[in-house]
Simulated scan of single mutants.
Amino acid sequence: MWSFFRNKKSKDELDSTKMLSLQKYSKESEIEKISNKLKEVLSQTPKEIIFLCVGSDRSTGDSLGPLVGTMIKGKNIPFPVYGTLEEPVHALNIKNVLKEIHKKYGEAFIFGIDASLGDEGQIGYIFIREGPFIPGNAVNKVLPSVGNYHMKAIVNYLDPFSPVQSLNSTRLYTVTILAEIITEIITRVAFDVREPIK
């Protein structure tokens, strides 16, 4: 887990081409916007694209990544997917998984997916961002930064005194809806992007 909103940016300051929210009525147009951004990102890399879905199925708030991994794997997207409910990628195995990816695919393009904590009014936001993310940061775990690009969804508010409680008190409904939207975004573009390198 990682809180993207370290700089205390307001909702209005965030780039609308990289954000969508469950709270907006224009969900379809927002999904289309972020789908187009993802297609642009994936189309520009000549490297093998890997989807790395980080999180644990033992915590409701942290289960977003494994849920998305399971859903997109079920859609048979033409790219490798790491991190599912059956085989989650989490704090205890992420270093080994990254080694496995680099051994098998070399310098791959890793697209990370993870849950995030933010302000109460930001619950339901999904954003896509260039660069790596740091899994476990909100709960003070020291893990390697991951990915070339990433997508995160704010599943609950961040209680600075008890971030683990924020994760464990997250509604499964919120996580499931966000996972379904992210899966829809990825599925829309995955089959339009170039064939993966063998």
Rank of each mutant, 00 (worst) to 15 (best):
K104W: 03
L92Y: 13
L85G: 12
L117Y: 01
I94Y: 02
K104S: 14
F111L: 01
P88M: 07
L117F: 04
I110H: 08
P88N: 05
K95T: 15
I94T: 02
K104F: 07
V89F: 01
A91P: 05
L98Q: 07
E107Y: 12
A108T: 10
K95A: 14
E86S: 15
S116W: 07
G106L: 08
K104L: 13
I101M: 07
A91Q: 01
E107G: 11
G112Q: 07
E100C: 08
E87Q: 14
K95P: 08
A115K: 05
K99C: 11
E87G: 07
P88H: 05
A91M: 02
D114Y: 06
L117N: 01
I101L: 11
V89Y: 05
L85R: 05
K99T: 15
H102M: 09
A115C: 13
N93A: 01
T84D: 08
L98H: 04
F111W: 00
L92A: 15
K95C: 12
I94M: 13
L92C: 13
F111K: 00
G112S: 11
K104N: 14
H90L: 06
L98W: 09
E87A: 13
F109M: 08
I113K: 00
A115H: 05
G118I: 00
N96C: 08
E86I: 12
P88S: 11
D114C: 09
I113D: 02
K99P: 09
S116T: 02
N93T: 03
L85N: 02
I101Q: 02
S116G: 13
D114S: 07
N93R: 02
E86D: 15
G118N: 06
N96K: 13
G118P: 07
I101H: 04
E86Y: 09
G118S: 11
A108N: 07
K104T: 14
L98Y: 06
E87M: 13
D114T: 04
L85W: 01
G106Y: 07
V89A: 01
I101K: 04
F111N: 00
L117A: 05
